[in-house]
């Protein structure tokens, strides 16, 4: 990618971040909450898309990393009374280590086997949450007490029950994730990642350790998804087994396909459309997950490049 194209993408990301920052001053309370959730789910989907969009690996088990972050942070706070920043850092580290272990095994498979293996590992994760019900309270889950959601940082107090504080933390995490991916993809490592995605055999025969390149992205992806889960658990104060379920592995796939796999801002766009839609539908019917099925099939049949993928193809070839 040329320097000019990279600069355009950087400006675009900064512009989107500026808009998101200013939203907190205009949105009504209910929508601030919704936007906070969306930004965290977008971080989750960004991590998923790092793997699918840039090295071409479709994981069906990313709920494992989201749930790992969620429980690693939440349980240390709940059971051991850890401080919020320490719990968050610990959770991101734990997710990265888990991704390293899972990746080292799962990346020995390709394509369909990779999808099934990741799905099964995530299933093991979901069962683990249920099995250790003494710690996790199983299906019902745990609520973090309000007292545990206030952190004294010395210079300031962080009150996670405050809506705007939560908004800005989620915003900070999203901004950091976008910038990390922007820099990574603009670097030589990003070029190697997409080379692996486009033609694995060729890339190996140019002297690159393809396995290491995939594993590196797998760990980045797992850590980012784990960070999203950790923030989700701490900001909303609830840890439930649902977050480890198959549905939470499918949602980032859905967001990414809708927004456009392999586009930096695609997952965010996908979240914006889907989360709003799902929330509206859930007020109308209990069978609101029907929409997940319909949208998946419509996308895969008629719109496989997604929103930003199509925009890139038709109008803006420089989008990354």
């Amino acid at each position: 990618m040329s320097r000019a194209a990279f600069a355009r993408n950087a400006w675009l990301v900064l512009a989107v971040l500026a808009v998101l920052f200013s939203l907190q001053f205009v949105l009504p309370d209910y929508q601030v909450l919704m936007a906070t959730r969306m930004m965290l789910l977008a971080v989750f989907a960004l991590g998923f898309n790092a793997l699918l969009g840039y090295v071409g690996l479709l994981s069906l088990g990313h709920a494992l990393f989201f749930a790992c972050g969620l429980y690693a942070s939440g349980l240390t706070v709940y059971h051991f009374g850890w401080g919020l920043p320490a719990a968050f850092v610990f959770a991101v580290g734990a997710s990265a280590v888990l991704a390293l272990l899972i990746g080292a095994v799962a990346l020995r498979t390709i394509r369909v086997s990779f999808m099934i293996v990741t799905l099964m590992f995530a299933q093991v994760g979901a069962l683990t949450v249920l099995y250790f019900a003494a710690w996790t309270n199983g299906q019902e889950g745990l609520s973090l007490p309000a007292s545990a959601r206030v952190a004294d940082l010395g210079v300031a107090t962080l009150d996670l029950t405050d809506a705007l504080t939560r908004y800005n933390i989620a915003y900070g995490l999203l901004a950091a994730s976008l910038l990390i991916l922007l820099v990574y993809l603009g670097s030589a490592r990003g070029r190697i990642a997409t080379a692996v995605r486009d033609n694995e055999g060729r890339t190996e025969m140019l002297g690159f350790n393809v396995f290491a390149a995939k594993l590196e992205m797998f760990v980045l992806s797992g850590a980012m998804s784990g960070a999203a889960g950790a923030a989700y658990g701490l900001l909303f104060g609830y840890l439930g087994a649902t977050f480890a379920s198959f549905q939470y592995s499918i949602e980032p796939l859905l967001f990414t396909l809708l927004g456009g796999a392999g586009t930096l801002l695609g997952p965010l766009v996908g979240v914006l459309f889907m989360v709003g839609l799902i929330d509206k539908l859930s007020e109308l019917t209990t069978a609101y997950l029907l929409v997940i099925g319909v949208v998946l099939i419509v996308l895969i049949l008629w719109f496989p490049k997604g929103i930003l993928g199509t925009v890139r193809e038709r109008w803006l070839p420089w989008l990354m």
Partner: peptide, 30 residues
């Protein structure tokens, strides 16, 4: 294989094997 390439053995495939969506220059840049 990749370590042998690093030591100086380059291989061109029997069936053309390039990055079809990347530009010619980007192919070589990899």
């Amino acid at each position: 294989a990749y370590r042998r390439v690093q030591r100086g053995i380059a291989y061109t495939f029997q069936i053309t094997n390039i990055y079809l969506t990347k530009s010619v220059a980007d192919n070589v840049r990899v």
